[in-house]
Amino acid sequence: MSKLDVRGMACPLPVVQVKRALEAAQGEELHVLLDDGAPRENVKRFAQGRGYQVLEEKLEDGFAFTITGVGVATAPREAAPAAAAGPTVMLIGTDRMGDGAEELGRLLMKNFIITLLDLNDLPDRIFFVNSGVLLAAEGSEVIEALEELGNRGVEVLSCGICLDFYKKKEHLAAGGVTNMFTIAESMLKARSVVRL
């Protein structure tokens, strides 16, 4: 049985220490003394999230945890199962590709989007944010390409705030409008995020 005292330690040290101790314990029971509040909550969440059982005991000065089980702490989980099956998301935050000459950057971005049409593996979703929304607005030269991507099942979505900022709210020419909640949620659930 191993013992560990993480009282008085600031976050994220308690979790880091417990993680190391669990890795070293290799299935042995671990006793941990820790402060109430964030350390108690974080360590409990961490251990239970990795499949350990946590028995809590309130002390006069903080808490004592008895952590048992095999868990998966010894090796961090690869990718969460939900994420492994998630969508591929492309986040386009500019109307130019790369740094350097603006004119070239615009040309490359246009080229990139049109080239997507020649590929078999398309992203599930493309989000346009900041000046990227200009690519989906009237006057853009990739409207035709974005419409075609839409026909092939790619969700093309522009950030509403950004359209508003660039005064393009009434001039969206391809795809739909979305909000930050959807963008953030979609990125976090994605199998991979390609950012431009």
Binding site: K110, N111, T115, E141
Partner: peptide
């Protein structure tokens, strides 16, 4: 007119 990537089968040097 539209400036586009050159079709792969026509493989131009600059690709445009």
């Amino acid at each position: 007119i539209l400036l586009i990537p050159a079709p792969r089968s026509l493989a131009a040097d600059c690709g445009l």
